[in-house]
Amino acid sequence: MPTIFSCQLPSGGWINLAQVRQLEPDPPTGKVVVTWLNGEKQLFDGENAKAILQGWQDANQKCRCHDQQNNENDY
Rank of each mutant, 00 (worst) to 15 (best):
N71E: 07
V33C: 11
G12A: 13
I15Q: 02
D26K: 12
A18V: 02
W14V: 10
P27V: 03
L53F: 05
G39Q: 06
G55L: 00
Q8W: 01
N71R: 14
E47W: 06
A51D: 02
K31N: 12
G12V: 10
N70D: 08
C7W: 01
Q8P: 08
Q22H: 14
L9M: 13
P27C: 10
V34M: 12
Q8F: 04
W36E: 08
G55F: 00
C65F: 01
I52E: 00
K31T: 13
L37F: 02
A59P: 04
L17S: 00
R64G: 05
E47F: 11
I4A: 05
Q22A: 09
A59Q: 02
K41G: 08
N71K: 14
E47P: 15
N38T: 09
P27E: 03
P25D: 10
T35S: 13
Q61V: 11
D67K: 06
V33N: 04
D74N: 14
P27A: 03
P2M: 00
L53K: 11
I4M: 02
C63H: 03
D58Y: 04
D67Y: 09
G46R: 10
D67M: 05
E72V: 10
E72S: 14
A51R: 11
E24R: 15
N38V: 06
I52G: 01
Q42I: 09
D45I: 09
T35V: 12
I15H: 00
I4Q: 04
Q57G: 09
G55H: 02
Q19V: 00
N38I: 05
D58N: 06
V34N: 11
D45L: 05
N38F: 02
D67S: 11
P25L: 08
R64F: 02
C7I: 12
A49Q: 11
V20R: 00
G55Y: 00
E24F: 10
W14S: 04
R64V: 05
E47A: 15
A51H: 03
N38Q: 07
T29A: 15
L37C: 06
Q22F: 08
I15M: 03
A49S: 14
N60I: 08
C7L: 03
